[in-house]
Design a protein around this nucleic acid. Structure first.
Lengths: 236, 236
DNA sequence: GTATTTTTGTAACATGTGTTACAATTTATA
DNA sequence: TATAAATTGTAACACATGTTACAAAAATAC
């Protein structure tokens, strides 16, 4: 049975072990063992309020953060304040894994809490200890790093090569798959979508209007009806 | 003393051990030991001619390639044939390290030989074996993965946020640092530069002309004289 | 249920880059 | 050295997205 390491260790009251067992880093490892792994190294749980910046772009960071509660976005910002949201992540998730063992530990993105979040913080030394003694965690961590490389490569390709119209068409098609209906409801505001697509909000609104006027979709606020799914798929 | 593993193993004739000892993957490991590591796993050396595609975008790939001779570029291409060169790499270099242990081993970039190249091929199983028995190689490999994540993040940021003018200004300033003169010579054609910047060639030519006309630089073919280094630095 | 804030819709205009085409120049090759 | 090929310089026009501004509509808070 799991025991807390001390009365004031907020992690050990088992509340996060369930969550952690769903995180890729600990995939294939049972809860008791996860608890043991964490208990044996220095760790702490940190809390963040909605809107708070969990990791500041360009900062040096020598710990791994594992999001155990809440939702975050990873973002880049240029000097004029233009924002690009790389992705949205929900607990459980490993945050900024690439900075832990890079030659220069500067983090190229910001991580922003979207609601109340908690994250487990493990120092680089502790991670070294975990990786050295748990081959399964090591394999998982390498897979996380590798997947991140693929994710970034694909994100780059999409930003560089896809038109705004094509990004939006693809987004509606995704909603269509998830919601299993030609009548989809956008889960994000135009502002949020435009930050994901890396464009200005009125540009997105214009593209939506054009697609509406051309009869591809019927757009009314967050409600979109797909009128011509084939041309949506052909959109490029 | 190093012995070849067989008479037809082109690696073992020690010709590449020097090169390998400079590759990050084997950093901190001496040549004899590198030879031992390679000899103990399946491996082969492949040759490629200039222009040949070493790794095809979107293909599945379950081996690691270590470039031991020549220069390659990693590229992305969109359906219309527009090219973005991610980077140019010279031997020694580890190619597409992110695909080896990703959940889905699809490679998001192409790797193209710029001249005659040779690469050492090690299968995933062999790499597993190497990583399991050589902690130093393992650490190095994780560092390579982490650095790649940072590289891609920074590349993304630059492509998304920097104007063409700013990219070119930065490039000239880099040349200035390397060549230690206000009179720099471009090492690449405009075509090559435009593929690095992800734009069309005439767009780059136009920006160069504008900067010339504004008196920032004097541009004559590949020869650029920096006339106002301060405004180059301020260019955004 | 009203007031306030956020989100959406729209317009006019600015700007940066793409496209195509071709001549001038430089570099490579026979 | 002559010839061909590649590279650079330039122009006119197209097109996608950015900028700014404001009204209409919807969502949220009081």
């Amino acid at each position: 049975m799991l025991q807390p390491c001390s009365n004031n260790c907020s992690f050990c009251f088992v509340q996060y072990t369930n969550v952690m067992s769903n995180e890729n880093l600990f995939r294939g490892i049972d809860k008791e063992e996860i608890g043991e792994i964490i208990r044996n190294v220095h760790h702490q749980v940190r809390s963040y309020n909605a809107g708070e910046i969990i990791i500041h772009e360009e900062e040096e960071y020598d710990s791994l953060l594992i999001l155990v509660q809440g939702t975050v976005t990873t973002e880049m910002m240029n000097p004029d304040g233009q924002v690009l949201v790389l992705e949205q992540l929900e607990a459980p998730a490993t945050l900024a894994p690439g900075s832990l063992f890079a030659s220069h530990p500067q983090i190229p993105v910001s991580v922003v809490a979207q609601n109340n979040c908690r994250a487990l913080l493990i120092s680089r030394n502790s991670m070294n200890q975990i990786l050295a003694t748990n081959p399964k965690v090591l394999t998982n961590f390498m897979e996380i790093l590798s997947n991140r490389i693929q994710f970034l490569s694909n994100r780059l390709k999409s930003l560089q090569f896809q038109s705004l119209r094509s990004k939006f068409a693809q987004h509606i098609l995704q909603m269509n798959t998830i919601q299993k209906s030609l009548n989809v409801t956008l889960q994000k505001t135009q502002q949020e979508l435009s930050e994901l697509f890396g464009v200005a909000r009125p540009s997105l609104a214009r593209v939506i209007r054009e697609m509406h006027n051309e009869g591809l979709i019927h757009a009314q606020g967050k409600h979109i009806t797909i009128l011509n799914i084939e041309s949506l798929r052909r959109t490029k």
